[in-house]
Design a protein around this nucleic acid. Sequence first.
DNA 1: CCAAGACCATAAGGTAGTTTAAGAAATGCT
DNA 2: AGCATTTCTTAAACTACCTTATGGTCTTGG
Lengths: 193, 193
Amino acid sequence: MKTLALIEYFNRMLPLDEKEIAFVEEIFKERSVKKRQFILQEGEICKQNTYVLEGCFRMYLIDPHGKEHNLQFAIENWWIGDIGSFHSNTPSKLNVEATENSIILQVKKEDQLKLFTDYPKFNQIFRVLAENAMVGLQRRVLHNISSTAEERYLDFLERHPTLFNRISNVQIASYLGVTPEFLSTIRKKIAKS
Amino acid sequence: MKTLALIEYFNRMLPLDEKEIAFVEEIFKERSVKKRQFILQEGEICKQNTYVLEGCFRMYLIDPHGKEHNLQFAIENWWIGDIGSFHSNTPSKLNVEATENSIILQVKKEDQLKLFTDYPKFNQIFRVLAENAMVGLQRRVLHNISSTAEERYLDFLERHPTLFNRISNVQIASYLGVTPEFLSTIRKKIAKS
DNA sequence: CCAAGACCATAAGGTAGTTTAAGAAATGCT
DNA sequence: AGCATTTCTTAAACTACCTTATGGTCTTGG
């Protein structure tokens, strides 16, 4: 099994004992997903939490005008899924699509809940993960309300150097909240200076 | 002590036993804060986590041009503080200021860590809180990248009906990421229709 | 009770970002 | 290899939002 990477990931946060490792291996199921395939679509309830072993995903919203807006990307060692839907069992408004052929580990909601009740250590691990995610999201909100698109793009390049050559500019523009045409003029301007 | 509201708040999430209640009462300290007073300023390390009993706060960033950008408001039963700074012991870039005379409960970092190690139940409580906060922040990012300022304002009114009559339009504009002047024209347009 | 700040509104001119459309470049498919 | 599709760029007209400025109302404190 390929749960090894995940075990190591958890271990780096908080060392696991054998039982915990065994249970993680039991409940996380490996799955491969082809490019352009969805692991969540609007209207579905998100019943699985997903950890990316290889590949890349994007999670996006389709607005009333039919336009897509990328909320998040996920590459190796990232989590992806609609936590809101997962938590409250309500239909998701988000889509999660593979942008490359990918390999993931998925855990069902009931198994993850069992993980929390039977092995409380994971409450701490996932608390820290959620807090880290919060910090990242706060940072992004601040950027969105205080910076220009150019500043946001430069910040994106700086913070995600491994991401920007795996993802098309159309997708990056959508993540930044601008049109691809405007991102193009930004890139041109930056290249000149 | 006024920890009662906090105990009830925790109890609603996950029932506490006597020992847990006693420890919460021991480590959370009541404090009153006057309007315009700061409980965190840029450059300081955030060493306390804050729960609002009464009053209202805003957390904001000052950008390189000297402009303020509101990241978050907090009224009764909300938490406020710079989690990033709190977690990593690094100087905060944020300011937290009371916008009304307020009463808060604060817990020191070391006491909160003790809470997590000695009473693991709180890992679960704070995991759920962090996950809920994530959902709210994701929602806000999506709005920022996909909606107009008018749509964001209407959404704010809808989601925070108790907040909008306690906070000036200048502060709301800063939260939405527009100038107060533009918010004024938005409000005028809405009033007409 | 007056002065000093806050807060809100309005308007004119400016800039950041969008729309539409069309062509060039890169990539995928058979 | 060769055609189709997606991706990137450019440009012109347009819209959302910003800046600066001015005046009015409402609080607040001394």
